[in-house]
Amino acid sequence: MKISEMSVSQRPREKAVLYGIESLSDHELLMLVLRHGNSNISVSRIAQDVLKFSEGLSKLHQMDMNDFMQIGGIKQAKALELMAILELNKRVLRARSLHMSVIDHPETLMEWLRLEIGMKMQECFLVVFLDVQNKITQHKVIFTGTLDRSLIHPREVFNMAVKVSASAFIAVHNHPAGSLIPSQMDLEVTELLMEASQMMQIKMLDHLIVTREGYCSIFTYLYKQTE
């Protein structure tokens, strides 16, 4: 159905004005963002196809420009608009994390990290550097590829830590397959960084595994193994 064929109160824009943006369904929000279709396909149908392709939004953050352009009615300009909205969402969470103690507000940190690397299809090793108040000063992807103790060099982590005057850091990597169970290599890399952390006197607060569904604290995992 075309927007012009809907009653005024049911059109996404008018409904948002009358009842608030939160009153819109996922389908209606996408219609509002997409704005219009073309002569061959309605904006309602395009929004439905986006929901179907992204499995009800659950995989939306994993989609790139080519994915969006596979959907009928979406060309490069519209694909870029959708990607810009997703990127803004990620940056809002990152900006919030910068002004909060990661100890006091771990949920904000985890949500940002989930969007930052948890959705990626390739494994990434990222380090979050913190000041004395446990606020984020910097973050950097140290390595991309299968996590391997021989490829993770502590000097890269600690050179950056010294450069940004970090008092502590959190190591993070993703599991594209979705498992939240640390592998033996994950544990070995954790041990390597913990040893270097003690030598450099820059505290390692944790090593996290993130996926699109959640996260695992390797420090908590190790603690439970000793109980």
Rank of each mutant, 00 (worst) to 15 (best):
V8M: 12
V8N: 14
P12M: 02
P12L: 00
E14Q: 10
V17N: 11
L18A: 06
E22N: 09
H27Y: 10
E28L: 08
L29R: 02
L30F: 12
M31D: 02
V33P: 02
V33D: 00
L34W: 07
L34D: 04
H36E: 02
H36P: 01
G37H: 01
N40K: 15
I41A: 05
I41L: 06
S42R: 04
V43W: 01
S44G: 05
R45N: 00
I46G: 01
I46W: 02
I46K: 01
D49V: 04
V50R: 01
S54H: 07
L57F: 10
S58A: 03
S58P: 14
L60P: 11
H61P: 02
H61L: 06
M63W: 07
D64I: 11
M65D: 01
N66G: 11
N66W: 14
N66S: 14
F68G: 05
Q70L: 11
Q70T: 08
I71W: 05
G73A: 14
K78R: 14
A79T: 02
A79Y: 09
L80I: 01
L80W: 04
E81G: 09
L82K: 05
I85E: 02
L86M: 06
E87W: 04
L88H: 09
L93W: 06
R94F: 12
S97V: 03
S101D: 05
D104K: 14
E107W: 13
E107R: 14
E107G: 11
E107P: 05
E111L: 13
L113Q: 00
L115H: 04
L115Y: 07
M119Y: 15
K120H: 08
M121R: 10
C124Y: 15
C124M: 15
L130S: 08
D131F: 07
V132E: 13
V132I: 10
Q133H: 11
Q138W: 12
I142A: 00
F143R: 06
T146I: 07
T146G: 08
T146K: 15
L147H: 04
S150T: 03
I152W: 11
H153R: 15
H153M: 13
H153V: 09
H153N: 03
E156N: 10
F158Q: 03
N159K: 01
M160Q: 15
M160P: 12
A161Q: 10
A161L: 13
V162M: 07
V162E: 08
K163Y: 04
A166K: 08
A168C: 12
A168N: 07
F169S: 07
V172M: 05
N174G: 07
H175S: 03
G178H: 10
L180S: 01
I181N: 03
P182V: 02
S183H: 15
S183K: 11
Q184I: 12
M185H: 14
M185A: 08
M185S: 15
L187C: 05
E188Q: 11
T190Q: 15
M194S: 12
E195F: 13
A196H: 05
A196Q: 08
M200V: 00
Q201S: 12
M204N: 09
L205D: 08
L205K: 15
D206A: 01
H207E: 06
V210S: 10
V210L: 10
R212V: 01
E213M: 04
G214D: 06
C216G: 05
F219E: 00
L222H: 09
Y223H: 07
K224C: 12
